[in-house]
Lab assay of single mutants.
Amino acid sequence: TSSHKLRLYERDDYRGLMSELTDDCACVPELFRLPEIYSLHVLEGCWVLYEMPNYRGRQYLLRPGDYRRYHDWGGADAKVGSLRRVTDL
């Protein structure tokens, strides 16, 4: 099985509160109590970021690497509604 891990930060450049995720999350704002995510670091696996909860809205593919600001993943703003692991490519 492949492993997945990413870290979410409330501010750009990996500042502020950090939360780690290793499984799908249908509602990021509810789980982490963060209305917006300004940076993230994908440590393992690929993920799909959705701008709205319950895997809706615009989708962004996140490969392992650094995303210091939301425009690094192509986002128009810092809204992160849900995240899902990519298990098949």
Rank of each mutant, 00 (worst) to 15 (best):
T1R: 09
T1K: 11
S2T: 08
S2L: 11
S2R: 09
S2P: 05
S3D: 10
S3W: 06
H4L: 01
H4A: 02
H4E: 04
K5Q: 04
K5Y: 13
L6R: 02
L6A: 03
R7E: 07
L8F: 09
Y9D: 00
E10F: 06
E10D: 09
R11W: 06
R11V: 04
R11I: 06
D12C: 01
D12N: 13
D13Q: 11
Y14S: 03
Y14V: 03
Y14H: 05
Y14C: 05
R15M: 10
R15P: 04
R15Q: 13
R15E: 13
G16P: 02
L17D: 15
L17K: 14
L17T: 14
L17C: 12
L17A: 14
M18E: 14
S19V: 14
S19R: 13
E20V: 08
E20Y: 05
L21Y: 03
L21N: 02
T22C: 11
T22V: 12
D23S: 09
D23M: 06
D23N: 11
D23L: 08
D24R: 04
D24P: 01
D24F: 06
D24M: 01
C25F: 01
C25D: 13
C25H: 04
A26F: 03
A26E: 11
A26D: 11
A26L: 09
A26M: 09
C27A: 10
C27T: 06
C27M: 12
C27K: 12
C27E: 07
V28S: 04
V28A: 05
P29M: 12
P29N: 12
P29K: 14
P29A: 14
E30P: 03
E30H: 08
E30T: 09
E30M: 06
E30V: 08
L31P: 03
L31G: 06
L31T: 14
L31F: 08
F32Y: 15
F32T: 09
F32M: 09
R33E: 14
R33H: 15
R33P: 13
R33L: 13
L34R: 13
L34Q: 09
L34H: 15
Y38S: 15
S39V: 02
L40E: 00
L40S: 01
H41N: 11
H41I: 08
H41D: 05
H41F: 04
V42P: 00
V42G: 03
V42W: 00
E44N: 13
G45C: 05
C46P: 14
C46H: 10
W47G: 04
W47P: 00
W47L: 00
W47N: 02
W47D: 07
V48P: 02
L49T: 04
Y50N: 00
E51R: 07
E51D: 06
E51Q: 06
P53W: 04
P53Q: 02
N54T: 01
N54H: 09
N54R: 07
Y55C: 04
Y55F: 14
Y55Q: 01
Y55L: 01
R56G: 11
R56Y: 09
R56E: 15
G57F: 02
G57E: 03
G57V: 02
G57C: 01
R58D: 06
Q59D: 06
Q59P: 05
Q59F: 09
Y60T: 10
L61I: 14
L61M: 14
R63G: 15
R63C: 08
R63P: 08
P64H: 04
G65I: 04
G65E: 03
D66P: 13
D66K: 15
D66W: 08
D66Y: 04
D66M: 10
D66A: 08
Y67W: 04
Y67D: 00
R68T: 07
R68D: 00
R69M: 06
R69G: 14
R69E: 04
Y70N: 13
Y70A: 08
Y70R: 09
H71V: 13
H71E: 15
H71F: 11
H71L: 12
W73F: 07
W73I: 08
W73M: 07
W73L: 03
W73G: 07
W73K: 12
W73V: 05
D77V: 11
D77M: 11
D77W: 05
A78M: 11
A78D: 02
A78R: 11
K79V: 09
V80T: 00
V80P: 02
G81L: 00
G81S: 02
L83D: 03
L83F: 10
R84V: 05
R84H: 00
R85Y: 04
R85S: 06
R85C: 09
R85P: 03
R85D: 11
V86I: 14
V86H: 11
V86E: 06
V86Y: 01
T87N: 15
T87M: 13
T87L: 13
D88Y: 05
D88A: 05
D88K: 15
D88P: 08
L89G: 13
L89W: 13
